[in-house]
Write a protein that binds this DNA or RNA. Structure first.
Lengths: 189, 189, 189, 189
DNA sequence: CATGAATGAGTTTTCATTCAT
DNA sequence: TATGAATGAAAACTCATTCAT
């Protein structure tokens, strides 16, 4: 566990937190450095500049989210089981990586995202569209445009995470389970 | 149609557009002035400063949204009819005031929102919680914490608006009707 | 008494007051217009610009001060009587034209004074130097460099005016008379 | 001799010079930075803003002036000796800290002075009033209101400093001594 | 490698001045 | 002639980035 690795992680943690709360332009580098417990100059030993920092984080976590959620998705079970896996995977990811969902959602359409970030975003969307379309072919999911279906389901997740962050609810096992049932009721045929 | 009113409206339109797309800190005043077609100094004849501008818009539109959606809400009809009214009202509002939903959602948790803005936000949330709780007492809506139920439903709306803005879907009458059915399926007992 | 004359006078009065209190750069034209009770544009119908306004006032009052003080200066009396006349003349001028002494003193060395203003300033100084030198030749005044003698005497006047403006003293007949005696004691041989 | 201390001192020197010559509002920060030989942003690393800068300087030098002049004031000598000490102390201060007297006099009544600055000003005035009143009780000084006496004496000092700055006189030992005699003649009973 | 003082380009904001009414 | 809304150049101030230590 070298010092470099630790400092870099401190910076990344602080960046997720501040970018997720105040946004990219609302977060200054000296502020970020202070929260990370490093000097402003140190950030530039690990990231070329502010844009490189957001993009690095966006790509890392967008891919991480995809990976973790897919790992929770049983490939041979029923569609219902798969959805259950995804839903639980999303909340597990959020619980294990606090602030990351906010960060990803906030920076979703930033003008500072580079080609790589946009590509990863587009790919993950494409994969999900295909998944939904597949379930529709099998007459499992309701027959709406996949982007609409996905938007409603994923936004529901986002909304619940936000509601918890704002202190309105507590996302425990029971609530995750209940909400999973309701969202399934929304999207299933 | 005085010049003053027109300039102020131009500024407000440009601010809704740019703040909604790039955020508060991501929008510069000269940029905003250019889009509004006025000189930078002119903005300050109508709004004390940048913060006063966002807050003015936030308050105006948050209240407008509440008013318009409630006006579409039949007070003596069934709960189902009421929900249908609200859902249609939300999309009508979005269609009539493009960009405003994005603006309100983006600035929802800004550190630059003043007390007045936070109060309006809190009030609108309180009213909706009460509405949901009422429907739960009558065993119409599913028995989840009202904030959770509301978060899922409202976020679904937000998600659909975003999906349209990003070009994935077209929010026509048919789709609004279908999504209304699906969201109702999610929240009803 | 045309409207124009009145407005111009209102502007001049406001300018003397504000320039004398906050200085040239510390006074804004809209502010000045408000105190004068006119629109900002109106000032520019009477004065080419802000600099022309100060210079006009500086020249007018510097000359007026010279004239009034000289009119109180008996040409055939004793030097003592002449000084008494000047001293009384200065305070009479200050009483009749409140704020003007502050204005003249404040703007004494402004970079915005034009050639004409500087010439009037220089002339009035030259005349006074000659007067002092004359009294020294007659062995009436103490033998210091005229600028030094003048600086001490005139500054004493300024100091008294300031002290009254700040509320420390009341410049009534008695005090003017007493201070005249003391300043004469300072400068006489 | 750290770089930080030097830069801060450069800024303070430039500020005394420019504020003393052109006034607070007549001096721009970039201009000040250029004279100080630093970047505009550097000023803000040492002073919160322009007002904090003037106030810091005003307080520092007002107190320094008081201290230095009092140190030259023999406590057991005659009143005459005390006055001589003060008068010499004032000119010594002016010679050692060129521009500071102009700065203090110019900013004496600025609207940008904060409570702390006004308090220091008020305190120094109060102390001097008491000193004068004490000398009057002992029938040393002439019986005028202390503020009037003080105004005349201190203004004479200011007038002499200004006259030198404008090139009319040279404040050498001899002239300081002679003016001291004349001012004493003015204020003594 | 890490730092943080220094920088200057860019931001928010002010204000002298203009000009359509 | 008087106005005041509008302007844009210039002011105060911020902050991403650099570089000497």
């Amino acid at each position: 566990m070298s010092t470099k690795a630790t400092k870099r992680e401190d910076i990344e943690r602080a960046a997720i937190e501040l970018f997720g709360q105040r946004g990219f332009h609302g977060t200054s580098m000296p502020e970020l450095a202070k929260v990370a417990g490093v000097g402003p100059g140190t950030i530039y030993r690990h990231f070329q500049n502010k844009e490189a920092l957001v993009n690095s984080l966006y790509q890392k976590w967008k891919m991480q989210l995809g990976t973790e959620v897919y790992m929770n998705l049983p490939m041979q079970g029923s569609w219902r089981a798969r959805f259950k896996g995804m839903w639980r995977g999303l909340f597990a990811f959020n619980a294990n990586n606090p602030g990351v969902i906010d960060f990803l959602d906030f920076h979703h359409h930033g003008t500072y995202l580079d080609e790589q970030s946009k590509m990863i975003e587009a790919q993950s969307v494409t994969v999900l569209f295909a998944l939904v379309a597949g379930a529709q072919v099998e007459e499992i999911l309701v027959d709406l445009p996949p982007p609409a279906l996905l938007a409603m389901a994923y936004s529901s997740f986002i909304g619940l995470v936000r509601a918890e962050r704002e202190g309105y609810i507590q996302l425990d096992e029971a609530l995750i389970s209940l909400t999973e049932e309701r969202v399934w009721a929304m999207i299933r045929r």
